[in-house]
Design a protein around this nucleic acid. Structure first.
Lengths: 356, 356
DNA sequence: CAACGGGACTGAAGCGCTTAAGCAACACGC
DNA sequence: GCGTGTTGCTTAAGCGCTTCAGTCCCGTTG
């Protein structure tokens, strides 16, 4: 086990003081180019890397950011969304040598506790917050702690919210990156309506999540605009799991006037739903059209392949990480919109059955 | 933004020295029970938490462990395995207030670089290593750095390997937790053989991974024992992706004498394969039996539901985390076996078609 | 009754780094 | 010749914690 060199070792070898080394390596003025070059050479030779703890202790920066995933264990795992997001986030972070602390917890209370702890322990310089909710306690908590944060998937133009901080009323009080679910949902509905569908059910995700609320609202608004009564076009809530997705599908398909098209809030439920249709002997898309929100391998492995709303999840993660870096650098809170999800038509959508 | 209290604040409020506080809070002797109680009370009041950087700097422990996932981006995401594993790991770690640093990278060289960096920066006290390979460079690297590690999914009783360290030749040179893939594969094959299948193809995962090699070897050995020629029972490699899983399925089903049963090395490929069968009009299980290695929601959402090898992945994670804690506490390297994967028969397996 | 032992606590150093302040050497202008 | 900068470095303090070597006081003991 090799001993790790410190700046003291570098200083000795280069014949200068420790602070000269620190200045040189951090690109600050006060060292001649010549000396700087020599110090850098010695550093290379010794393979020195800054001790993160020492840096954190003096520099007040831990060089790490945190991300908590609050999901009940049974809904974990089958979502492609998450790892893609993380991999995008890390592309940006690791270029800046920032580490990612990751924690999985059961619920949002536990998540808040983790944030408090990280803050108190000075473990992280900032956090990324996923799955924003309606009445989300987290922005307020984080603002209170002064822990820089970026909300991933928040916003819908709903204003600066929690008040106080900003003063002016201009811009959001906490940074966010978001996708325009409202417009995406509108487009999906228009697409299905254009194909001739009039009875459409949206198998929604967890009701408490902000984007679920926005999709539900968008569906209702667009249905109204198209003159479709609420009984024919509506949303039903689930917990995102395959189980509830399948159950909801079974339920609505058993109605006297079943829908001719289903829009699922994630890929897992869409696949589960298409299996239910197969089981019931309902042909897809002949007897039922299916759209999945979020694309993944899943949508491509079913038969027929599922029409899906594709988005660049890794890109979304990159955007979020960039935004967090901007906040850490002292930038003002912003809301940045990612590109609009794109509807990728595959074999699971077609005009409704003629009988209708 | 509240200022975070330090032991100095506690010391002042409790009327003792900082070192008394440190002793009291760390449960060391040298403080009376009375004083200790008082210090604890003040600590509670102030809501103090140790500054992790300061602790790391003096105590030589960072209070964090690392986990790197080296996967090309396109195979990321649809695996339930991973998040389940992490959630199990964290159940154990967070009870000990140990943070998890998580990093996703493209390949194993990048992973090694991350380990080196974490070590040099003293970011982590130890690491968890997933996806062990044949000729894996990581155990040697980590042993060289003196970075405590636990291999997840390694071993098969292949001995202590890399030599040197242990001296005695007793026990492995690095800790591992493992599942007995060999026996599991044997059981799967026996099950299929018992049903009457004689032509069986194993759609394997990445050839470089140690457990793939073990499963392949186990398949061959058991086929031999059962007197089945290598042409009839064999493995074909893939990269675990749905695409290659589907392609391999298509390929073997197009052969003049196609297999009557397929064993997939993960759930995603199994689902993709069952979609290919549907597309080709081959009934499952009537015309083709399918077994998935690793269960997840996926296996339950297809129609028919897939017979799968179930294992307690979160439990596996817990075991790994516990083992890492043991290593950090100075324990000797051990190989701990997790419970044997259990074959959960569902509707995708049956006797082969009578025609055969 | 002085010497001793030990429990309870304090002081100070040190982990590896950053950074404010200090200082020597030199150039410049008047 | 002397102030006034500048440049290029050093010294020292400090981040919050741990830990080791003392110190002090009190009860024992020969």
């Amino acid at each position: 086990m090799a001993r790790r060199p410190t700046i003291k070792d570098i200083a000795r070898r280069a014949g200068v003081s420790e602070s000269a080394v620190s200045f040189a390596l951090n690109g600050r003025p006060g060292v001649s180019e010549q000396t700087r070059a020599r110090i850098r050479r010695v550093t290379e030779e010794l393979g020195w890397q800054p001790n993160s703890a020492a840096r954190a202790l003096s520099g007040e920066r831990s060089g790490a950011v945190g991300l908590v995933l609050a999901r009940p264990a049974h809904t974990l795992g089958v979502e492609s969304f998450f790892l893609q997001l993380v991999s995008g986030i890390q592309e940006v972070l690791s270029a800046e040598r920032i580490a990612l602390l990751f924690q999985v917890v059961e619920d949002i209370e536990a998540e808040c506790a983790v944030h408090r702890r990280w803050w108190a322990e000075r473990r992280v310089d900032g956090v990324l917050v996923v799955d924003p909710r309606t009445n989300d306690p987290r922005p307020e908590l984080l603002a209170g702690l002064g822990l820089p944060a970026v909300l991933i998937g928040g916003y819908g133009g709903e204003g600066d919210g929690e008040g106080g901080d900003g003063g002016g009323g201009e811009g959001p009080s906490v940074s966010r990156v978001w996708a325009d679910d409202t417009r995406a949902m509108t487009e999906v509905l228009d697409h299905l309506h254009g194909l001739g569908h009039r009875r459409i059910v949206h198998i929604a995700g967890l009701p408490g999540l902000a984007h679920t609320a926005r999709r539900v609202a968008a569906l209702r608004a667009e249905a109204e605009r198209l003159g479709l009564p609420a009984g024919q076009v509506r949303s039903v809530p689930t917990d995102y799991s395959d189980t509830e997705g399948a159950a909801a599908t079974r339920r609505v398909l058993a109605e006297p006037e079943p829908p001719t098209a289903l829009v699922y809030d994630n890929d897992v439920m869409a696949v589960a739903g298409s299996a239910v249709a197969a089981e019931l002997g309902i042909p897809v898309p002949g007897g039922l059209s299916i759209v999945a929100w979020d694309d993944s391998a899943l949508c491509r492995v079913t038969h027929p392949r599922l029409t899906a709303l594709v988005r660049d999840t890794a890109g979304f993660g990159r955007l979020a990480a960039e935004e967090l870096l901007a906040v850490l650098a002292g930038g003002p809170p912003r809301a940045r919109e990612s590109e609009l999800p794109r509807l990728e038509p595959r074999e699971s959508t077609s005009p409704p059955p003629a009988a209708y």
